[in-house]
Write a protein that binds this DNA or RNA. Structure first.
Length: 412
RNA sequence: GCGGCCAUAGCUCAGUCGGUAGAGCGCCAGGUUGUGGUCCUGGAUGUCACGGGUUCGAGUCCCGUUGGUCGCCCCA
């Protein structure tokens, strides 16, 4: 096909697709506001260092998935692959690290990763995101998760997902656990898949969520982090779980949950589903305590999550309905002016109303039907002479004369 | 970055053994010069994704490209 198409991994959101996306973002905006989150917007592209520092040089996102350009001034800039690093940069850039902490931020917008597209995965995709910046208390972890759960419930997708949580511990816990894992997997090195042997060098934690069957058998016998947690890290995790119970958020502990990006510690969680093929994670996040420092700010503990809007939009049990307007239909030239007056009166009364730009009565009725109008208001010479309009219910097919002044009230 | 499958009308898809393109839905017009959604009648629409090859002849077979899709890697 020679016609222009959207670039690979991008797509247009039109009609039902747009309404699905909009419902996800709007619901997240509304519910997160109930928890005290304020919405921010930050640039779509940033200095490349915001991401290379923030996400860790070894992560795939940084090493091979970023849209990075040199601009005309010779600066290296990158289309953001996620929101968190930019939000932490904004906290520092705007001098917000000194007071008023924690800041609770809601975010939604497009993100960019150069990946092979597949179901629920695009090169330009959208996330909703909340972050609590500047709180070290486990209550903030639990509140962030409770807010996510609340949003999923409101969207009607909660029943299709399961919350899995784990702890990655603090730095001493993680280092000790990492060493134990390396020792264990090294002993089984020859039985591991090729991918996992690479992981053993790069990021041993990643072997824990391998999909390879042989790996899984080995993983089943692998040490868990529980035995390596410092007392402080263990107490932190216990407190998060107690708060989740109090908030009434059901969860399943999964010691094999890890996070893809390097900045996480302590709480890690994912809402997963079996309805999206290989892209099972619908919302994922955790605690990250070093990122603000990476951006040049003071040590600032944070916790948050991101969720894929495309994935949530696909899970919505039903498409949000299109709005149903009222069609105002003048018959004959003399009716046009009063029809426009009535049209605006309807809109001022909060009624979605449309007028066709051309066509006779039949044509306009056809169009009213096609745009899903719930009612037609027909105004011709006879009606104007009598000071009324024909108000036709397009679902029932019934029609009656209504005094002009009463029409907006009848349709509100 | 790697592998499987797929690409025919606006949409969903048929197209036999290689013989010059079809259906349903939708769209347009009429049946009805003041009434839609139902019904009836008629009509339009394709570089068969793109490029090359085999052949007298390719939607059909072969190669490549692009795109889609599913999986791997990774991730929301």
């Amino acid at each position: 096909m020679t016609a222009l198409q959207p670039a690979r991994g991008t797509r247009d959101l039109i009609g039902e697709d747009f309404r699905r996306h909009h419902k996800v973002a709007e619901t997240a905006r509304r519910i997160s506001a109930l928890y005290g989150f304020e919405e921010w917007a930050t640039p779509i592209f940033e200095d490349t260092r915001v991401f290379s520092r923030g996400l860790g040089d070894t992560s795939d996102v940084v090493s091979k998935e970023m849209y990075t350009f040199t601009d005309r001034g010779g600066e290296s800039v990158t289309l953001r692959p996620e929101a968190t690093a930019g939000l932490c940069r904004a906290l520092v850039s705007n001098g917000l690290t000194q007071s008023n902490l924690p800041r609770k931020v809601f975010y939604t917008g497009p993100m960019f990763r150069y990946e092979r597209p597949q179901k629920g995965r695009y090169r330009q995709f959208h996330q909703i995101d909340i972050e609590v910046m500047g709180a070290a208390e486990p209550l903030s972890d639990a509140e962030v998760i409770a807010c996510g759960w609340h949003i999923l419930q409101e969207l009607g997708v909660a029943a299709a997902t399961v919350l899995e949580i784990n702890t990655l511990g603090d730095t001493p816990s993680r280092d000790a656990y990492r060493a134990a894992l390396i020792a264990y997997f090294s002993a089984h090195r020859d039985a591991l898949s090729h991918d996992s042997r690479v992981r053993l060098e790069k990021n041993p934690l990643r072997i824990l969520d391998s999909k390879d069957e042989t790996d899984r058998a080995i993983v089943a016998g692998a040490p868990t982090i529980a035995a390596h947690l410092t007392p402080e890290a263990a107490e932190f995790y216990g407190s998060v779980r107690r708060h989740l119970d109090r908030f009434g958020v059901p969860f399943r502990e999964n010691p094999r949950i890890v996070r893809g990006l390097d900045y996480y510690s302590h709480t890690a969680f994912e809402f997963v589903t079996d309805q999206l093929g290989a892209q099972g994670t619908v919302m994922g996040g955790g605690r990250y305590n070093g990122l603000v420092e990476e951006m040049g700010g003071p040590p600032t503990p944070c916790v948050g999550w991101a969720a894929g809007v495309e994935r949530l939009a696909m899970l919505l049990p039903e498409a949000p309905p299109a709005p149903r307007p009222v069609a105002v239909i003048p018959v004959g030239e003399a009716a046009e002016a009063p029809a426009l007056d009535l049209l605006q009166a309807l809109r001022r009364a909060g009624v979605t109303a449309e007028i066709g730009y051309r066509g006779n009565l039949k044509r306009r009725m056809e169009r009213a039907n096609r745009i899903g109008a719930r009612a037609a208001v027909i105004l011709g010479d006879e009606e104007i002479a009598a000071g009324v309009a024909q108000l036709r219910d397009l679902d029932a097919g019934t029609q009656e004369k209504v005094p002009l002044a009463e029409v907006p009230g009848r349709l509100a």
